[in-house]
Design a protein around this nucleic acid. Structure first.
Lengths: 112, 112
DNA sequence: TCCAATAGTATCCTTTTAGATACTATATAT
DNA sequence: ATATATAGTATCTAAAAGGATACTATTGGA
């Protein structure tokens, strides 16, 4: 059996999740529900406005988060996780879980 | 609460899985158990030898696959999934599952 | 003696992703 | 009239990931 990456479903799922700040943004919104642009910017230490906007747009594009603009001055924009985005939670949780074990394992190996 | 990507466990897990061909290689070895370099090369349509070697080395580095060299000519090298690598299977399976639903969803949305 | 088969390396180039930094629009409060 | 707060854009640069292509070592068999 032959295959190309484009036809690999796991590859697809990963490509939606990948981006230096995407998992963190999702996790934040999953636990907070809603956050303003500026709040996210403060929480994500080191992110540039360009990257923040970019990652948010890509997540929105996939329907994982939603963007609500309040027509005020100064501007107010709120981002929240969608119901659909929440369907990713079990996957993120199990990755978190797995990663903790992986770290332990690596530590043990370097001690031998 | 503030956070950097390096301290995000999900980010860590992803960085192990990411690479254009890594998920496919893992899935192959999970289902086949063992494959030779050349078999993988044939299966992974379009991969260059450099990339194949690179992805295999990185997966080996993490302990997810193992490499066995037979001292023969012409050379024979077999790659297999490790027991440890198999612990990723539930995660890959759920990503596969999720991705199929995601595709359906996208399709439905473009039809509206 | 020369070729075939296998599992790679080596080198150079292109594309993608991310970082740094400066700038913008606008109603409100002073 | 000016400064302020917020949510971004714009532009340029650096680093990482991936692709194309040619090359190598080895030895048993014709």
């Amino acid at each position: 059996m032959k295959i190309k990456p484009e036809f690999c479903k796991v590859h697809d799922a990963l490509s939606i999740l990948v981006g230096k700040w995407k998992p963190i943004i999702l996790l934040y919104l999953m636990s907070e529900g809603t956050m303003r642009y500026g709040e996210l910017k403060k929480a994500l230490v080191g992110i540039t406005p360009k990257m923040l906007t970019n990652q948010l747009r890509e997540l929105e594009e996939e329907g994982l988060i939603s963007r609500e603009v309040y027509r005020e001055v100064p501007p107010k924009v709120e981002y929240s996780i969608t119901e659909y985005g929440m369907t990713l939670k079990p996957i993120l949780d199990s990755m978190h879980e797995w990663s903790m074990e992986h770290k332990k394992r690596k530590l043990k190996n370097t001690m031998d």
